[in-house]
Design a protein around this nucleic acid. Structure first.
Lengths: 165, 165
DNA sequence: TGCAAAAGTTAGCTTAGGCTTATATTATAT
DNA sequence: ATATAATATAAGCCTAAGCTAACTTTTGCA
């Protein structure tokens, strides 16, 4: 997501061939593109969650440790270990065996972008009047599927409707 | 998602022990619950996408065929084939080799719920003023991560701000 | 009506993201 | 100073979701 590679807008509205399809479906190509984008978002989603959380832990407690990541993501330490080595391969974190985890500059950048997005979505949901627990849950799931265009709309909306946070 | 099993709301705000953590992080347990819910949503997400699309195709063209699913999801026919047999195991569709795919009653129900959710989110984004292409893309990604509470808020908002569909 | 193209299936491979169980290292508390 | 608890890593397993390539069945048309 986040990029704006959807310059699509091709409804199949032309009675091009046979004469079927009464419904209003997107063209197969546009449809496929949407699903491909969602799949791409899923690939980075977990990574962003880890990076964002590592950043939050560093800020909140001075360091990020596998145990705490495991606790907060709800996963075993072994799973976190695998993920950390992937993140390390991707040059998003530095980690020495048995030491705390650090963000690389690129990792820090990703963490910041993720945090900003997360906060934007959460504030937006609150200002819409969504109950706190639902807002938190939904923000966690939605944040990776919100385009820049929508984020902007959310920010505008939230600042016009100040009251919550 | 969709259920409302978040009765959480435990900020760690108590200066319980050492004296660290200046930030405002959720309790580890609440945090883990959120992530677990997101993971659960991911498991059903693809399934719902297939079922929703099968329903749409049946409505729009009279039948759902693997080729068309493959085309619209942006995946090979082999991948669709695997998925259909999973859906069949889950009793969401009926399919005979080389024949069109049908929804079971449970499948039809899931398709309808998904369609309704999808439409709610899409209309909401439109009525917020999100550009059409972004709205479509984001709705596709967001629909599986929106709680019932938020859906209700979205419906209310949309009907108060009629103008776009 | 018969054969080529389209649709569907099968087999076998890959990666991501989980898990458990076992082992190794580091930190702490007496 | 060392035993134990806490943390981390390693090895090996599983499922989901993708792929390609080869094969079979159906369909449509010349």
């Amino acid at each position: 997501m986040s990029d704006s590679e959807f310059t699509t807008h091709e409804h199949v509205r032309l009675g091009d061939a046979g004469g079927e399809m009464p419904g209003e479906m997107l063209s197969p190509e546009a449809h496929a593109r949407q699903h491909q984008n969602v799949r791409k978002a899923h690939e980075t989603e977990l990574i962003e969650d880890y990076i964002e959380l590592i950043g939050d832990l560093i800020d909140a407690k001075g360091e990020a440790r596998s145990v705490e990541l495991a606790r907060r993501i709800g996963v075993t330490q072994a799973t976190v270990g695998n993920m950390i080595s992937r993140l390390s391969d991707l040059e998003l974190v530095n980690s020495e065996p048995y030491r705390a985890i650090f963000l690389t500059p690129e990792g820090r950048q990703m963490a910041e972008r993720s945090r900003r997005r997360h906060i934007t979505v959460l504030r937006f949901l609150r200002s819409l009047g969504v109950p706190e627990d639902a807002a938190r849950q939904d923000a966690e799931g939605m944040e990776h599927h919100v385009s820049d265009a929508t984020l902007k709309v959310m920010r505008d909306f939230t600042s016009q409707n100040r009251e919550a946070d």
